[in-house]
Design a protein around this nucleic acid. Structure first.
Lengths: 193, 193
DNA sequence: CGCGACGTTGATTTGCCTCAACGATTGTGG
DNA sequence: CCACAATCGTTGAGGCAAATCAACGTCGCG
């Protein structure tokens, strides 16, 4: 059942049988429907989730009630609110399924156990978060230096599959523009190839 | 000489004498003047830098030649272009001193040596990057969900010392607004307490 | 069938940018 | 020690990118 996860770690430092045996009993599979939540504002985030199948979004809600996406995750990606996970303070974020989704979740005490008993997990999760950091930094820089149209084209370029899979209003939220304005951008882009 | 760094690690998982002895010969102190660079676009980033004294900014330059700050670092903080450091591809970023600055730098082969020979460094650098990730995520979310004035006030609140230490044009660049517009914000804020 | 999710369009408004100009400092070389 | 340049913050006029608000068409689905 944790086969997707074992394959995933081969990209970093592959796990040996002993490590797989440590990991397997500390993950649990969970199925969530479209529009269900893995995390809601106010919850303390106590898990890392590995997406086996499906697609989720992570977002914050501003004082006017608008949602602002900061991260998407699909097959073979990890998602969690690292801030809340560490501090054990209530999260200000939501993680919600955009499709029927299957995750493997690792509970915080189990992850700490893995860190303590096997340094390779420290290593692997260090590299995972480094990659996430690079991606986020790239996104943050583009957001302050490029126009909305440039950001949209960059998104299509960087996440071609995702852009076909999720509603464009979700992309708009991630890019920091309104759905209406993104619609205009799409029209312009279609006109001017 | 590496005393500031040893003290720093006590915040995470403190180093024992053996680990200090591994680390010390693998750091080198470097002094850079105001406006000098630790990294320029096109360089491959081969170091982690720990700021002992001073202050640096990391930024990208857009096609119109404008600088956009994505990170500041001051005493007891690490800075590097993690993307370039990992891939060994040329960086698209600059790291420039805003004040006369003293850093301890760790060269990539030395860091890899530390990772391999002592798991505690994996652990510590995992936690360091996790904290940086949380900070960046916070910033990215604010940038798409708040007005320029709200972002400015949040910056003052989160980095009160830094906001007194660096020119406000640098803050404007970090917040994604022009210096002129930030000036107007400051006037409004001063008027309306 | 009817309802909610989704995308689109247009009219109007606004937050922020551009450009240009101007003091106030600070630094620096003659 | 002064002249001069460079940096830094500020102000104002005008313009544009993107938001707001409202309305409408289409689709998929319960």
């Amino acid at each position: 059942m944790i086969q997707p996860l074992v394959s995933y770690f081969k990209k970093y430092v592959a796990l040996d049988q002993h490590e797989i045996d440590l990991l397997a009993p500390r993950t649990s599979q969970r199925k969530i429907k479209r529009r269900q939540f893995l995390l809601q504002e106010g919850d303390v985030c106590r898990h890392y989730w590995f997406i086996v199948r499906g697609c989720v979004k992570m977002y914050g809600v501003d004082k006017k009630g608008k949602e602002h996406n900061i991260e998407f995750a699909t097959e073979n990606e990890w998602i969690t609110d690292i801030g809340s996970f560490h501090t054990e303070k209530p999260s200000k974020l939501y993680i919600e399924a955009m499709e029927p989704t299957v995750v493997l979740q690792v509970h915080k005490p189990d992850l700490l156990f893995l860190y303590v008993h096997c340094p390779k997990f420290d290593r692997n999760f260090r590299v995972i978060i480094e990659n996430k950091f690079v991606e986020l930094q790239h996104h943050a820089l583009k957001n302050i230096s490029n126009s909305a149209e440039e950001r949209y084209l960059a998104f299509l370029d960087q996440y071609p599959k995702l852009s076909l899979r999720i509603p464009s209003a979700q992309i708009a939220s991630y890019l920091g523009v309104t759905p209406e304005f993104l619609s205009k951008i799409r029209k312009d882009v279609a006109r001017h190839p």
